[in-house]
Each structure stands twice: as C-alpha cells, then as structure tokens.
Design a protein around this nucleic acid. Structure first.
Lengths: 125, 125
DNA sequence: TCTCTGATTAGACAAACGTCAAGACAGTGC
DNA sequence: GCACTGTCTTGACGTTTGTCTAATCAGAGA
C-alpha cells in the first residue's frame, strides 16, 4: 500500500535533483525516508544489484531481457519479478520493441541515492 | 548464515576504498553483489534510514541511544534491533561508555556505496 | 489466420523480516 | 553490598519476500 505511493512520489523526486542533502548533513525527515527506503531495499538483493549494474553499464544505455535472463541461474519469471521490483522502485524503465523488451537505467534516481550517501566528511575525527 | 559472512567481508572492504567501481561502468561480480547487497538492504527500511542519518549527522560524530529511541514511535528493543542490523551491515560502530551506548557512522562504507551508485553519465543519450 | 518465440502475470510455498513482551546484563548512586 | 536505571538479548507471532510452476499476453513470420 505505502509501496505504490512511495514509487509514485519517488518518480516525482527523480525530476528534482536537489531534494535530498547527504545524510551526514541533516537528519532525514520521516517522509523522505519512507520515499527513498524502497529504492535502497530494491538494491538490497544480490540479484537485483547485479541486474541494476548490468542495465546501468549497458553500452548503448539499454539492454535486452534476453541478455539478462541467461546471466543468472534463475527462472525467467523470477528475473522478471526482480525487474518489476526495480521498475516499481523507479530505478529502471522498460520498453518493448518488437519481440524483445529493453531495460534502461534512470540516472536521476541513482544520482539521488548517491548524493544522499555522499559524506562531506565532517564526521568523526 | 551468508549474512554473517557478508558482514565480515564487508568490514574488510571498508578498509579498501577502491574495491568497487560505479555500476554504470562495469557489471558487478556476483561476489561483490552478495557482499554489498546487505548494506543496501540495511538502508532499505525507513526507520534504519533515519537512524543512519541521525548517526551520520551527529554533531560530535556520535550519538547516544538515549537520543535515538525517543525519536521514534517504537519500543526500545525494536530500535535496538534495527541498530544491530546497521551494526551487522558494517554501517555503524557502537561503544558503551558508562550507562549509555554511543553509535558512530563508518564513513568508509557509506563512501563505498555512494561511489558504487555514482554515474559517470555515459548512460543514455 | 495460425503457430512459434519470448516476457509477464497469477498462485503457492518456504524463508526471512519487523515488531513486541519478557528476561538478563551493565553501570550508577547510596 | 544493594536497589535503581537503562540497554541488550531471547523467543514468539504476523507479514513480507524470493522462488518456482503453470497460465496468459504480445509480437513475428509463414
């Protein structure tokens, strides 16, 4: 229930690259945490992390599902399930062209998460 | 079972800041994904994300549990459980001084994750 | 139109997660 | 030494997640 709302709001945030200062600067508001946590959760599975890296590092900016599926020892539906999770988290976009479906990363949200984690190193001595 | 092994290995990685190039450059090896995914998973809960931000943004570089617990509408043990998750993920360190326990962030691992997500923007057109 | 290939959806099950209540442990002050 | 305060650990329960098989949907080619 909150998942869908979060995905929608996260999509909005993706358009605004200055929403979230690093966690080393300010405490994250509960709302922001509720919105961004699903994105981290989506990356919290080894298979999805690899899928995300394969999609993000694809040479033409996109990659066919037919290349992703055989790269894992998992069934097609399972890979599809993980891709759906990444999609709902706003991390990737999917597009069907002819027989195959192509996935591409959404750099905005990745940049968002990276900025959140980037330390200005005022922490510790 | 794999969680503990991952936590240990992640602790090692924290010492090496150059282990993980951005996912936009290379596909993540399965081993690396298995090691880093638990860290993202640990950040995949709104409460833990807020806890992490409170710890990372603490003015003296550390923060007392007695400040963290009342900031949430959750029981003490539940907060303790989440802190343990962050600890096992290698994201924070805990130290007991007198009555209270103090938590401090480990900038290394945060930098690690941020680097992984940072795009050199070769993706897309 | 029919058939074939490929991706997604639906349903089911085991494992892991988030939460709380109760009990145990550590340190302080008298 | 003893009682008190505060935190952590253990055990339990309901929910969510990850995986599979079977079925459905979308497009290409004959």
């Amino acid at each position: 229930m909150s998942k869908q709302a979060a995905a929608l709001t996260l999509t909005d945030i993706t358009a605004d690259a200055s929403c979230c200062p690093p966690i080393t600067e300010h405490r994250i508001p509960a709302e922001t945490a509720a919105i961004l946590a699903p994105a981290f959760k989506a990356l919290g599975d080894p298979v999805r992390l690899q899928l995300m890296s394969m999609i993000a590092s694809a040479s033409e900016g996109e990659i066919c599902v037919c290349e992703l599926t055989p790269a894992f020892e998992l069934s097609g539906p399972t890979i599809s399930h993980h891709l759906k999770t990444l999609r709902e988290a706003g991390l990737v976009d999917a597009e069907r062209r002819g027989t195959w479906v192509y996935y591409r990363a959404r750099p905005g949200i990745l940049h968002q998460l990276a900025t959140l984690l980037t330390a200005q190193t005022p922490v510790d001595a």
